[in-house]
Amino acid sequence: MPTRRTLLRSIAAGAGAAALGIPGAQAFAGTAAAPSPREVDLRPGSTGSEVTAMQHLLTEYGHKTSADGYYGPVTEKSVAKFQGAHSLVKDGWAGPLTMKKMLDNGKATAEQGSDNRGAVRAAQTLLVERGYEMAVDGDFGPLTSSSVEKYQSTCKLKASGTVDHTTWTFLFSPPRKPGPGPVDGKAVLVAQSGSGLSTWAYDCGPAAFVSVQLRLGRKPGKWTDVAHRGDAIDYARRTVLRMTDDTRGTGQIGDEVGLVAGFERIGVDRAGTGGFDDALSTVRAGGVSMLGGDLAVCAEWNGRSTGSTLHWIALLDHSAESGEYQVADSSSKHNKLVWVTSGQLAAFARTWGASVCLK
């Protein structure tokens, strides 16, 4: 008769399964490993629903924060307070360690009947962002519960209807869906004319920045529609790109690195600097670009006679048939997208030729 130690050793080797009539190699077949929690990293300067959700959670933890979707100085202070209360480095950056502490906690668990309304609002905010219709009211009712179950099933998580740590991480950082490329939004001209802005000074960069976000399928901060585009341009200028009325700063010619940082703040991690050839090749490959050059050259296609000054435009698409590039030029007199040749773009870029490419 085998000893207890021998029996345990046999089970560990798979013999125990055979003794029960199950082939050792198939004893655990069909038992799929549960998906691991995803890394969540929110950076100061970021905007969007993920920031709004974190702000709701901070309020739930007792650090009252306005849920405005902007990770500015006030939110940084709240994050630092949370970090201090949980023995973390108080740097105001909601990196992976801070977000794990915030999400892997009973106070953050949200389920039907939960009274932690801040956590429920956070979950509802992210569910709405993922395409589920509901009110963000802090009431975890049947609709929220069924939406959580559907989202969990989509992510191959256990459909429990409870927002636990792993579910939180998938809500904050969903797996990217495979697609033909990074460009899946509408090509929209975010023109400065008729935008209601008090000045055009230094707004070509933010306007092109917003056009590129829309082409990427992202909703820029404060964007509602084309008619109210000035709100989105101004929001990008003052928050994401951190510009002021009296300084050029990020978003202007000569600050391509600052523009890349702006894209990083909104969660776009495939932006890089380049020149004229880089801008065009990126668009031909299915990406988008911002191209810097001389505003005076734009009169050839936008109908507005202007003086010579440095200017940003957005390159949103390429036609293999005609060889032309689709341009969103914020100085356009006719407020419409135009198709221009590589020769026209070369003339435009001859003065500067800097670019920011999103591949």
Rank of each mutant, 00 (worst) to 15 (best):
A354E: 15
V89Y: 14
L127Y: 05
N116H: 09
R117T: 12
A53S: 02
A94Y: 02
I233H: 07
K186T: 07
E39G: 04
P182R: 12
A34K: 11
E111M: 05
G293S: 13
L315W: 07
A354S: 14
M1S: 08
L20A: 07
V283E: 08
T306E: 13
S322K: 14
I233Y: 08
V190F: 08
D203G: 03
G194A: 11
D234T: 07
Y61R: 03
R218N: 10
F276I: 09
T166W: 11
K177T: 15
H318C: 03
D68N: 13
G181N: 13
L358A: 00
A299L: 08
P175W: 13
A347E: 13
G275P: 07
R237V: 06
S36E: 12
T125P: 04
G95S: 13
V260E: 07
A227H: 12
V89I: 12
T125L: 00
T239H: 14
G118N: 07
L171T: 00
V297Y: 08
G251W: 10
A159M: 13
A110E: 00
E133I: 04
Q55F: 01
G251Q: 06
N302I: 15
A346N: 07
K90M: 15
D41K: 04
D231C: 06
E300A: 13
A29I: 04
C357K: 07
A354M: 01
L42Q: 06
V89M: 13
D294L: 13
L214I: 10
S10A: 13
A32N: 06
S173F: 05
V297W: 14
K336S: 12
Y71C: 05
S173H: 15
M54C: 00
D269F: 09
K107C: 00
G292M: 11
Q344M: 06
R215P: 03
N335W: 00
A17P: 05
L42D: 01
S332E: 04
S153E: 05
S330A: 07
R284G: 11
V338P: 01
A15N: 09
T47H: 09
L20Q: 15
G196D: 04
H311S: 09
F209C: 04
A13F: 08
Q83G: 10
P35Y: 10
K64P: 01
G131V: 11
E149A: 11
D104C: 00
T250N: 15
G179D: 14
L8W: 10
M54W: 01
Y70R: 14
G217P: 09
A271I: 03
G293D: 12
K333W: 05
A208N: 09
M1V: 10
L345M: 02
E264M: 06
L295C: 13
L216F: 05
T239K: 11
R117K: 15
F276H: 07
E149T: 05
I266Q: 12
H63E: 04
L358P: 01
S281G: 04
H311F: 02
W339H: 05
P175S: 15
S153N: 11
L127H: 03
G48M: 06
